[in-house]
Design a protein around this nucleic acid. Structure first.
Length: 594
DNA sequence: GATTTCACGTA
DNA sequence: CGTACGTGAAATCC
């Protein structure tokens, strides 16, 4: 039975009467209806179902948040995106999609997959929309109007039937609560070293942060941006002809180093290869790192490398990029994902994660505002110490520069020690890595065994979980067992799987700590009335950028530091591992650290 | 028109 | 024969 309520106070009262307190789950289904009006349904344990008329949807949620602060439970972060557009930011949620990715690994998620996973069903067998249910379970009254007797979700509900009316939305929210309970059961059963339930909450918070990052955007100084681009690729072309001319001019600088009359398409790698062969340079490919070594062989090489740099700006990070991704409010916006498909790092589009360092001066705080820039120092080796529990390695994390004590213990120079540690984590064996790895086994046997175990699991095709419980997906080393087996490529595929697994355990645990840190910063900023205008505007794997009024920037800087201590202490309690962050207050992202 | 290859930016 | 990602241009596949 769904109660229809419009009055925020009445909804709060009903939830309180139902026994919902702080941090306790409230299912929420919220959507923009066909006519752009909001449709909201709420559900609480014990059977309370509330549908809310569109005019009051946002007000009701804000009132419940203010009075109760529950844990909002939703299928995906669509409600978070909608709400942030309406000026509402919530404290805690349980995002079924994010938790699903945690449970089953990979990136793909939808309601059918989420539901099927917790019900032990094969999502590929789920009924498709329009498919007739010929007596195979779609008749009679089931447990829930959206659930068939055979346990699958009804395709109409998956397709969005619940979006039509608050009553239906409330039932959809009710189902979200059911799925959460089942996800929690599964999380409890996971054999992870860490607390998978805590990871689920943190990953959910990261999804809300993603919605906010998309909404807020990254502050850009357009004057600086345009100046930098102009220096690199010239004036903004006014039409296609001029753009062609500008391209041709840049090409001519490179081609001028060749005998007259010879022309090559610099944008075609095969053409570039034959161009280089014409001047006596034979290379298997024309990648920059290879050409670096040929710099002195012929002046055309140097010119080509410079051309490539400018071409990158012209094509990817030029005027078109600004037009497409920077709004009239001078904010660079792209889509964010809380997790990639491998180990669980955040991803971002619109170039937010691969902005060339040359363009970073354009990322500038507004007048009267500053950036608090914080990046974790040597996060991956520190995480390795924590997840492996290698006591000698844990001791090394006491140092600001972890590679110093490692170098001392190995009796090698610091650069060798660094290469050794990184090679162990990444599975690198070539070059100087082999020599650098010497001694690591003896000095840090537990950490090295941890990595070897992961590598072996990968090679054998066994699935792993990160410290926080994320499933590391594994694939078939030989996709087609009927195809002729090339022994070399087969063993290469197996080795590659081993490196992947080895790296994913470390990279994944680092991503989990990073998100716990970011979520803590988000929560603490929101919880302090003096700091609540400050916003996280960029997450970059081990780096946070917070846009904040300059007047409170010092307080935000110490908060960010304190949040790292809080998050790492909670995450890796009892391991004794020390995490360090370099925190500085700057006007521009490019400004030097500390 | 969609997919693959090459290249290169970030961590 | 160190991992992950996103983007763009050209080639390649259908």
């Amino acid at each position: 039975m769904v109660t229809l309520l419009d009055d925020p106070a009445a909804v709060v009262g009903a939830l309180v009467d139902a026994g919902v307190g702080r941090g306790e789950p409230v299912g929420l289904a919220l959507t923009n209806g066909d006519d752009g009006r909001l449709v909201l349904g709420l559900a609480a344990d014990g059977g309370l179902l509330v549908g809310v008329g569109d005019d009051e949807a946002v007000g009701v949620i804000a009132a419940v948040e203010a009075a109760v602060r529950p844990r909002w439970v939703w299928w995906s972060n669509e409600p978070a995106s909608l709400l942030v557009r309406h000026g509402v930011r919530l404290g805690a949620c349980w995002d079924l999609s994010a938790v699903h990715r945690l449970l089953v690994g990979g990136w793909r998620t939808d309601e059918v997959r989420i539901w099927s996973a917790v019900r032990g069903l094969d999502h590929r067998q789920a009924p498709a929309l329009g498919q007739l249910d010929l007596g195979d379970g779609d008749s009679g009254e089931g447990e829930h109007p959206a659930v068939r007797a055979d346990g699958f979700l009804r395709s109409e509900w998956v397709a969005g039937l619940w979006r039509d009316a608050p009553e239906a939305a409330a039932r959809w929210a009710e189902l979200a609560l059911d799925v959460m309970a089942r996800q929690q059961e599964r999380l409890r059963a996971i054999a992870a070293a860490g607390d998978a339930l805590a990871t689920a909450r943190s990953e959910s918070a990261a999804e809300m942060l993603c919605a906010e990052l998309e909404h807020d955007g990254l502050p850009i100084d357009m004057g600086v941006a345009l100046g930098l681009i102009q220096d690199l690729v010239g004036e903004r072309p006014t039409d296609e002809r001029e753009a062609d001319r500008s391209r041709a001019e840049r090409d001519a600088v490179v081609l001028a180093h060749l005998p007259p009359g010879q022309t090559f398409d610099l944008r075609n790698p095969a053409d570039v290869k034959s161009m280089l062969r014409r001047v006596g340079i034979d290379v298997p490919d024309t990648r920059a790192w290879r050409l670096e070594q040929m710099r002195t062989a012929h002046p055309v090489v140097e010119a080509l490398l410079l051309w490539r740099k400018a071409e990158r700006i012209a094509t990817t990070f030029g005027y078109g990029w600004l037009d497409q991704h920077v709004g009239p409010d001078h904010r660079l916006r792209g889509a964010w994902s809380g997790t990639d498909g491998a180990a669980g790092r955040m991803t971002a589009q619109a170039g937010l994660h691969n902005l060339p360092a040359d363009l970073r001066p354009a990322v500038r705080a507004d007048d009267g505002w500053s950036f608090v820039r914080a990046d974790l120092g040597q996060i991956e080796p520190r995480v390795l110490a924590a997840v492996s529990g290698d006591q000698a390695f844990v001791q090394a994390t006491a140092a600001d520069d972890l590679y110093r004590p490692v170098a001392e213990r190995l009796r090698v120079d610091r650069p060798i020690a660094k290469v050794g540690v990184l090679a162990a984590m990444y599975g690198q064996t070539s070059g100087t890595a082999g020599q650098a790895l010497q001694g690591m086994d003896k000095a840090y046997p537990v950490a090295m065994q941890y990595l070897r175990d992961a590598d072996r699991a990968g090679r054998e095709g066994r699935e792993l979980r990160t410290f926080g419980g994320r499933l590391i997906p594994m694939w078939d080393a030989i996709p087609d067992p009927d195809a002729p087996v090339d022994e070399r490529s087969a063993s290469a595929a197996i080795a590659s799987r081993g490196r992947y697994a080895r790296n994913a355990t470390v990279q994944g645990a680092a991503a989990e700590l990073f998100k716990a840190w970011a979520a803590t910063v988000r929560a603490r900023l929101a919880g302090d009335p003096d700091l609540s205008a400050s916003r996280i505007v960029l997450c970059l794997h081990d780096e946070l950028l917070v846009h904040t009024p300059t007047a409170v920037s010092e307080r935000v800087a110490s908060l960010v530091q304190a949040c790292l201590d809080e998050a790492s202490g909670r995450w890796f309690r009892g391991t004794g591992v020390r995490f360090v962050a370099d925190v500085s207050i700057v006007d521009s992202w490019a400004d030097a650290k500390a």
